[in-house]
Simulated scan of single mutants.
Amino acid sequence: MRVAISACLLGVPVRYDGGSKPVSEVMELAGKVDVTRVCPETASGLPVPRPPAEQLGGRVLLADGRDVTAEFDLGARRCLDAVRRSPVRLAVLKAKSPSCGVGLIYDGTYSGRLVPGQGVFARRLEEEGICVVTEDTVKSCKPSVEHPVAIVLGSGLGHLGSLVRPVRRIDYRDIEGFPQDARPVAGHSFEATVGSIDGVPVVVYPGRIHLYQGYSAAEVTALVRHAHHLGCRDVVFACATGAVPGQAHTGLGILTDQINLTGRNPLAEWEGLRDVESPFVDMNDAYSPYLRTIARGVADDLGIAVEEGVYAGVLGPCFETPAEVAALSTLGVSYVGMSTVCEVVMARALGMNVLGLTLAANESGAPAVSHETVLAEAEKHAEDFEALVRGVLRLL
């Protein structure tokens, strides 16, 4: 996987003051991927050191008042040409700068105040369809003993738990909010494992409960709240689904967005909502673009066939009728299942970074589908699924 990274984040002295801003998490990522180093300012011929620059009214001005908009545009074009010469999917850029800022930039008053906006180079990369993040995202997603990665597994996917080098195990009945009378369906287990996979700290939950079993949305998201309580900032949700004909094929998939068709929302039932500042959770990029891009890059590097698409969560437990499948296709849905959507809502409410992976075990609406055939199909893809998850953990 090749990643474009701001040179200053790698310790190269190219900043306006002649220094750099090395970030250990970014440098660690750089040691695991192929890197295209970028610095639009120096690529444009601007000297080092130089007066600081900020955007104001669509222009880029140095602190001494000189207009360097043309120079910043030239540097952005030259760096974009370098990125185009290699298959870059991801760019990690210096936050807040007039060239590389993502989402927030300095406002042109040199007061340190931030306003919504994009850097000149960051905007060009996004127009190319490249995922652009700052060092803050890389740091936020970095696992540690204090912040392990939570992995919630669905039907037939629980075997990933066998890869964990355990430190301790937690019976689901000891998890606050999890129903004491719950019994796992086939392909699920109700004992979480805290430990590591390939040296990466994880908490693996090898099973879940579902709305169709009669549990509330608050109950089915108890594992998410537990993971957050343990310090998890990243959560991987894996689920078995049906592939909507014409939108996706059977096999592994990366979830890009979701449609909640269950008629339930865990936030409407969660007592903890009373303690948060606002109940209105932003669901844009609910599935982290950074984590999705990492997963895509891992799959490509390993030669694992993976598609991407929108997930629709339904109440279940019936499989879909032909008319429902046609409606889902019209809605642009690629995958349909009976879990995950409420969990993602809860994870986003708690500020967690979400990666959604699916095994499309059958064609949605096809005859002769059963829970047993889903489990059998999951077994066929077990090796690729494990390799994909391990690859993502390694890059994080």
Rank of each mutant, 00 (worst) to 15 (best):
D234N: 14
N265L: 09
F280L: 14
A326W: 08
H249R: 12
A227Q: 13
E277M: 08
A268M: 15
L255R: 03
L328I: 07
V333W: 04
G231T: 08
L328N: 01
D257W: 09
V333C: 05
L331D: 09
Y335E: 02
Q247L: 13
T262A: 10
Y335R: 04
F280D: 02
H229R: 15
G263A: 10
V310L: 12
P289E: 05
G303D: 06
D301L: 13
V244H: 02
L291D: 05
E324I: 14
Y335H: 08
Y287A: 08
P317C: 02
P317V: 06
G251Q: 08
L261D: 00
L302K: 10
D234W: 01
Y335Q: 00
P279S: 14
G313L: 06
G272L: 05
G253T: 08
A268K: 14
E271V: 07
V314L: 10
G263N: 11
T340C: 04
D300T: 09
L331S: 09
L331I: 11
A299P: 00
S288Y: 05
A286D: 00
E269H: 08
A248Q: 07
T330A: 15
C318E: 11
H229V: 11
D301A: 15
D301E: 15
R264E: 12
A286R: 00
T256L: 04
E308K: 09
A305K: 15
V336T: 03
M338N: 02
W270F: 13
P245K: 10
E308T: 10
V281C: 02
I304P: 00
L230A: 11
V310E: 00
S278H: 11
G272N: 06
A323G: 10
S339G: 08
L273H: 08
A327V: 12
E271Q: 13
G316K: 12
A323F: 03
D285G: 03
A243R: 07
L315E: 10
L252D: 04
A305E: 14
A305R: 15
D285Q: 11
N284S: 15
Y311M: 05
S288E: 05
L315S: 14
A286L: 02
Q247V: 11
T241N: 05
G297C: 06
L331V: 12
T321E: 01
M283L: 13
V310F: 03
I294W: 08
Y287F: 15
G246R: 03
A227T: 12
G313S: 03
T321W: 02
A238G: 12
I259R: 07
A295V: 06
T256G: 01
L328F: 11
G313D: 01
L315D: 01
T330E: 14
I304S: 01
R296C: 07
L261I: 07
R292A: 05
T250Q: 08
V281G: 03
V281H: 02
E269G: 03
E269C: 04
L255H: 00
H249V: 01
G242Y: 00
N265Y: 10
L267E: 07
V235E: 09
M283R: 03
L315V: 12
C232W: 06
A327I: 13
R292F: 02
T241F: 01
F237K: 04
